[in-house]
Design a protein around this nucleic acid. Structure first.
Lengths: 250, 250
DNA sequence: TGCTATTTGTACGTATGTATC
DNA sequence: CGATACATACGTACAAATAGC
């Protein structure tokens, strides 16, 4: 027994080491959003690598949403503020290659949104309650006339709820999945014959959720929220999956 | 009013068009995992771009976890099977740059794991129940002796539950966040003075969850699951956040 | 085993379009 | 408008690694 435990050697490419160092600098806060990286020529000197290596590294960093570079910019690449764009991209890819069904996506939203509402009922401030109310008012104003504004107001509502819940991860994930779902069935939603009625019912549900949040009744708010989402999306989900969604309604 | 509605022109880089086309081929299934892309030289002919452009595109595709290329491989880059690695990477980055707290991460797990358990109580097969039981048995066997095996068995348990729940997105996200949490506090967990007691209690909780799943009592299983997670991690979370976690225990 | 052909990894030079001053 | 510095893209060259003989 014993002897030294050797580990397999992984040859690490030059561009990866560049990525690692820059990534660490950004994630540790040594480089802040808005700041600039040195120019590509400067980077090749600092890392003692060729231009192509620097560029491949910058491509990866750009794909991860950490930096952006523009041609002609007298400064180097710009360090970007945090954005869930990379998460959005990888979840969208995930949805396609893992063949996530609409039912799974909606179910995920029911779970996270329900949790956000539950937390919001505890932690919301009066100001946040007002935001939710304003969002629903905007939904009412746009109902039947402006599809786009209705959707935007709905997003604003769920965002206000998620922020009130105090969990950034839940907030981000609900938003990412919401946009994926909407993209998947935007055409079917717009073409729904009972579109007007769906919107009205959605608004009513939202108001009930707000009332429950205001009353501090988290479990009720969560049930109402899940029910609202179910009613809105169930029509686009196959019957088999629909029953799995109903499991969350009890 | 009227006239054509012009849209702002977005200059799109050459490498991006290459990425788009290959990505579409992979996500649509035209290229399956295990298949090979043409060699870089072949790609530069097909896309009429230079090799550096091809390589930058391949780097991005590699960063997204879609392909992998090895030096000297006479075949081109390999199309990879689906993996949540890209999602894992972007969530890890998210956790750092958005400064997600341990409390938020644990809360997220409580929500998703609770939902998975709730669904599993409805949808589980006898076989999956056996898997969960086997995982807990492995946890018991490893308790106090083999930290690593204990952790692996715990992962196996939660994975079996998530699979039984039937929602791949929940399954993947729980696993991703679990590994982030573990990485964050692995050292503190290992150094816990009451480590042995924590493990025993965790096993007991897992058994209670299995019993509730077997009985088909989803809500009870979910409560027990969230309670188990809270007990296990609450010690590592600050008091302020701990109260937000308790909001999920009612 | 060694050899060879092919491919990727990396380096370097150059031309071009663009943003800033 | 010109000058400057930058990113973009192309092409060539060579080293290192792999597969197949």
């Amino acid at each position: 027994m014993g002897g030294p435990r050797f580990e397999p050697v992984r040859t690490v490419r030059a561009y990866e080491r560049v990525v690692e160092q820059v990534e660490e600098a950004i994630e540790s806060g040594a480089l802040s959003p808005g700041e600039r990286l040195p120019s590509e020529r400067e980077l090749m000197v600092q890392f003692s690598v060729s231009r192509s290596t620097v560029r491949e590294a910058l491509r990866v960093l750009q794909a991860r949403g950490l930096v952006r570079s523009r041609p002609g910019d007298p400064n180097g690449a710009e360090v970007l503020p945090f954005s869930p764009a990379a998460l959005h991209k990888s979840m969208t890819t995930l949805a396609r290659v893992a063949e996530l069904s609409l039912g799974e996506l909606v179910q995920f939203r029911m779970v996270l949104d329900g949790a956000a509402v539950l937390l919001a009922a505890r932690l919301r401030t009066e100001e946040q309650l007002a935001e939710m109310g304003a969002a629903v008012a905007a939904m009412r104003a746009a109902a039947g006339t402006d599809e786009e504004a209705f959707g935007a107001a709905d997003v604003a509502f769920h965002d206000a709820v998620a922020r009130a819940g105090g969990n950034k991860l839940i907030q981000i994930c609900t938003d990412v999945v919401r946009s994926i779902v909407v993209k998947l069935i935007a055409d079917r939603i717009a073409a729904a014959p009972d579109r007007e009625e769906l919107m009205r019912r959605s608004i009513r549900h939202h108001e009930e959720v707000i009332a429950a949040i205001r009353a501090g009744d988290g479990p009720l708010a969560a049930r109402l929220s899940r029910k609202a989402m179910y009613d809105y999306y169930a029509g686009y989900v196959g019957e088999g999956e629909r029953s799995a969604l109903r499991a969350l309604l009890e």
